[in-house]
């Protein structure tokens, strides 16, 4: 470690400049990939770059961005949530049934489900369980509950939620404003507040944090509760757009959310995450998955592959940049 730092100080200013450029490039990578996808869309279909075009293309971006943020909180604590997709589906089913017919019961159920998430965090910490397996098991629980709440596709979103999601602000489409707001709020909370630093620290070096007197149990509970909260928001936003629910509606979100976090510059270990990056990653996936392919006349069969290919390309670019960093 000492040798490495000596090495850094010994570097010439030119080398340091190159290093700073590489770091900047790495930080900008999520934004660059989004810009690239946007450019491709603009080139293929200029008419899509309009108020109406964006409202349409980014239709589902809000719930994806929220689910990605939920996953990001879990990843910040060095865990992984494989149940967020079915959780979003469960929330969707509750939103389309209880929240409309008996709002009070609906709110209690949703708050309770956030509580379950917090409990899972506690359980994983106290028993030192692998989060992959626990959340994989929970994905069955949420799916089962979703089917019990809504055995057949249907239900209806509450009117206030429909009105909210159909909001049409002047000049800038709602999904873009919402994505900006989500990114900025979470960025402020996680990156700029002192407890946010502690939360990320619990992923970066849990042992050191524990010795400094912070409760690792509490950080894990908070991270999982935040994941639950954003999962609930994601499910509600989704139903606000689709108007009715289906028990399987969120299943694809688990993997999309992980991909979004990684695309946005997050890493699996070390508490290194980026809320704004995660939102950008989610937008990139949302745009690349269907509008771009439609404009390129690629059959929908290859939509999933596009997500995989984008992940691989961005990660390959990251490796190239990191190589220069050293």
């Amino acid at each position: 470690m000492t040798a490495a730092s000596l090495d850094t100080t010994a570097k010439t200013s030119a080398e340091r400049g190159a290093l700073a450029r590489a770091r900047l490039l790495r930080g900008l990578l999520p934004a660059l990939s989004l810009a690239l996808v946007l450019l491709a869309i603009a080139w293929l279909n200029p008419r899509a770059i309009s108020y109406f075009g964006f409202s349409l293309m980014l239709n589902l971006a809000i719930p994806i961005a929220l689910a990605t943020i939920a996953q990001m909180f879990v990843i910040a604590g060095n865990e992984l949530d494989l149940s967020i997709g079915t959780f979003v589906g469960f929330v969707g089913c509750v939103t389309a049934t209880w929240l409309k017919d008996a709002p009070l019961v609906g709110v209690v159920i949703l708050l309770g489900s956030i509580g379950v998430y917090a409990l899972l965090g506690a359980l994983i910490h106290l028993r030192n369980l692998p989060s992959i397996v626990v959340t994989l098991g929970m994905s069955f629980v949420w799916q089962g509950l979703a089917i019990l709440v809504l055995p057949k596709p249907g239900g209806k979103a509450p009117d206030w939620l429909l009105a909210f999601m159909a909001f049409k602000p002047p000049f800038v489409p709602f999904p873009i404003i919402a994505a900006l707001l989500i990114g900025l709020i979470v960025h402020f909370g996680l990156m700029r507040t002192s407890y946010g630093v502690i939360l990320r620290g619990s992923g970066g070096n849990p042992a050191a944090l524990g010795r400094a007197g912070w409760s690792l149990l509490k950080t894990k509970i908070v991270l999982f509760a935040l994941a639950g909260l954003f999962g609930v928001l994601s499910g509600m936003a989704l139903i606000g757009i689709t108007t009715s629910a289906d028990a399987n509606i969120g299943n694809g979100y688990t993997l999309l959310a992980i991909a979004g976090v990684i695309l946005g510059g997050g890493e699996f270990v070390g508490g290194r995450v980026s809320p704004i990056g995660a939102v950008i990653g989610a937008l990139t996936l949302a745009l690349a998955a269907s509008p771009l392919l439609t404009f390129m006349h690629i059959p929908p069969d290859w939509q999933v592959a596009a997500n995989g290919a984008i992940l691989i390309i961005v990660l390959a670019a990251r490796v190239l940049i990191s190589r220069r960093e050293r």
Partner: peptide
């Protein structure tokens, strides 16, 4: 029912691992 089956499967997996 299918819902209860999924629910119990999940709970048992979480229970066993706990």
């Amino acid at each position: 029912s299918a819902g209860v089956r999924l629910l119990l499967t999940g709970l048992i997996i979480v229970g066993v691992i706990t």
